[in-house]
Design a protein around this nucleic acid. Sequence first.
DNA 1: TTGCGTGCAAAGGTTTTGCATGGCA
DNA 2: TGCCATGCAAAACCTTTGCACGCAA
Lengths: 145, 145
Amino acid sequence: MTGSGYKTKQRDAILGFMIENKDRHVTVSQISEYLSKQGKHIGVTTIYRHLDKLLDNDLVRKYSLGPGECSCYQYAGSDMDCHEHFHLVCESCGKLFHLECEHLSELKGHILREHGFSVDPFKTVFYGLCSDCRDNEEKNKGETE
Amino acid sequence: MTGSGYKTKQRDAILGFMIENKDRHVTVSQISEYLSKQGKHIGVTTIYRHLDKLLDNDLVRKYSLGPGECSCYQYAGSDMDCHEHFHLVCESCGKLFHLECEHLSELKGHILREHGFSVDPFKTVFYGLCSDCRDNEEKNKGETE
DNA sequence: TTGCGTGCAAAGGTTTTGCATGGCA
DNA sequence: TGCCATGCAAAACCTTTGCACGCAA
């Protein structure tokens, strides 16, 4: 499954980049720009097509960081083991946090039992502010106001 | 605050449509198409601009139903009273559910205390399947396979 | 009359598609 | 060799912006 398609240098470069950055989500333009700096010019068309294939094989996941924002992709291969946890995205710094916590697994069961709604942890993203950005905001408030 | 700006027939039509459909989220093209059928041709530019104003006044909220999907808007006026609860969106039928439950309010506190992350209930949307669509899917499975 | 509201056209950005060429097996 | 992969250009799509005209106050 993983090895579907031909082995090309573009495929290796894109998959390699996704694995290197498995701890964060990246956009197509970020992939393109980074690979350009490495001397690897790969058309965005190719990047989109590879990401689509990886998506079909569940090797990456696709997120939206909000309306109007471009799509974000993140590696999610079998070694990532991301079944049953949720994701937090900081609206200020854009960082992604994996929230593995039994309180949250319980939440999924609770919503299903009590509210009849089956939550999909893959697609559900919590938006808010991480602790670093909250600290920064409070600093800025103190300085400007 | 609510009455900011001139009172025009376009404004009335758009705000009226949003209030009529307060129980679901709609896209700009849905608004445009529906009003066209009513004989009210309103340019999408105008719709976008009114929605932006309503957004500033917290009279509507803007959602993303996924990467690549266009933005969805939903009325959220003061009579909606949506402070501290979360929203569930069914990926199949697009219906929106308001989830008012102390288990969820607790969740916000839990993530803040234990994980240092301040969740914004306005922007956070749970995606999944509602009970009706789950039933339909099971029926379809039984018929086709 | 003043100034915001409107809508057409055009521009901006992201993503997709067509097509000829290139490269893997 | 056959077929998929690639990348350019163009299209499609959503959204924003510029500008001239219209309309509310």
